[in-house]
Design a protein around this nucleic acid. Structure first.
Lengths: 225, 225
DNA sequence: ATATGTTTCAAACATCTGTTTGAACCATTT
DNA sequence: AAATGGTTCAAACAGATGTTTGAAACATAT
């Protein structure tokens, strides 16, 4: 019966998320799962393989809970971006009940283990492709560098609402998600990024290819306004 | 003599950064430092206090290595922003030699320990104030929410070049810092953020204070263009 | 030189933790 | 009913790890 297997994986998520791989003990997880101590060795061979399975399990749960949106063919890229950012925030930054999903995956990002490659393949890559296709529509004629740095800017803004949680609380007493909710934040990030994207497109579509002299181009544009 | 103390702290940084608090053993650190095993207990009482001291030591080293810039009174806010972002990136995202500084502090952000409060007070708060004063100049008449979310957007973009390292490598083979160097990235983040800030200022300075109906305002502006 | 307070050292201690073991249990098949 | 293959269990094992200990070494002042 792999009902025991499942109970172990479910119990492992929160504990690994809170304590980390090393500090989480198999005894604690087994007690939480209500299984015998040897169950982990029996079902997963050893603690590390068990951990990898738990991360995979968490990623699947997260993807089920907040699935990637499916858009009609003709949906404008601007709206797809808002939808994407909202999904992203809901996946990582939300604290409602199973807060440990994001916590565990975050841990995998900061301190990658054997589970990282799988995690990127199953979880990160699909989101990355999605964002890339939006940006290809929004900024078709820019360099690879411009597009890649834009990806990082957008992703960084979203992830910071998870990574920065502890510091935000220490700094301000509460997180932005707690203060404003997800929707205004998603709108802010989308607007913020769209403004920047539109400027990049405007600058780069000028007949010159100067990638470095952005300041010059910007000043020229301002004087004409 | 607290030369032993110093040797321990110096040795502890990289090891705590790479392995994490639990996985790093006092034996390993003492061997690296060339001290006796009991030295940690003697000088720092126990492992946890030692870890807190090591984080503090790392933060100080980081602040010495990349000090906050000092600007002339009349320096434009736009240039101060570029200078700030460059400093930020140099502090956290750089991999030249003492890569562990950023790694250790990052850990403290994601998985705060007893060292976190001090870390925020001595390290985060000054940078936060600095950015806040820049943004107060750049966007004097916006709501607290707008300004706070803008802070998070800028900080998130910078930090992602550290937090996202492992995933970037898994996804692309190398990090953006490795590909392009710090300067182009700092310029990108600055330009990106300035474009967004200017749009926010333009929108919010309209006689209405609608914080939620950004979409409506945006559409109206587009039709007039 | 003696005494005193501080620092280092090797060894031992106590505990925790991942893993193994071999018997017991259970469901299914012969 | 007997046997088989898979699963659970309590107990023990082996190794690692933070911490303590008491003696030795050292520096400094009287």
């Amino acid at each position: 019966m792999d009902e025991t297997r499942l109970r172990l994986l479910d119990a492992a998520g929160p504990i690994f998320a809170e304590r980390g791989y090393r500090a989480a003990t198999v005894r604690e997880i087994c007690q939480e799962a209500g299984t015998n101590l040897a169950a982990i060795s029996y079902h997963f061979h050893d603690k590390e393989s068990f951990y990898v399975a738990a991360v995979k399990h968490a990623a699947e749960g997260c993807m089920d809970r907040v699935p990637l949106p499916i858009w009609p063919e003709l949906m404008p890229a601007r709206e797809r971006l808002l939808s994407f950012v909202t999904t992203f925030l809901n996946r990582v930054a939300i604290d409602h009940e199973p807060a440990w999903h994001g916590q565990l995956l975050m841990r995998e990002m900061v301190l990658p283990t054997r589970a990282c490659a799988e995690f990127v393949r199953d979880y990160v890559r699909p989101m990355h492709s999605m964002l890339m296709s939006i940006l290809t529509d929004l900024m078709p004629d820019v360099t690879e560098q411009d597009r890649w740095l834009t990806v990082l800017s957008i992703v960084g803004q979203c992830l910071h609402h998870r990574f920065g949680q502890a510091v935000m609380i220490e700094l301000n007493g509460k997180t932005a998600v707690d203060s404003y909710g997800v929707k205004p934040i998603a709108e802010h990030i989308t607007e913020f990024s769209l403004a920047a994207i539109e400027r990049i497109v405007r600058q780069r579509s000028k007949p010159q290819r100067s990638a470095t002299k952005t300041r010059k181009a910007k000043q020229r544009r301002r004087t004409t306004a």
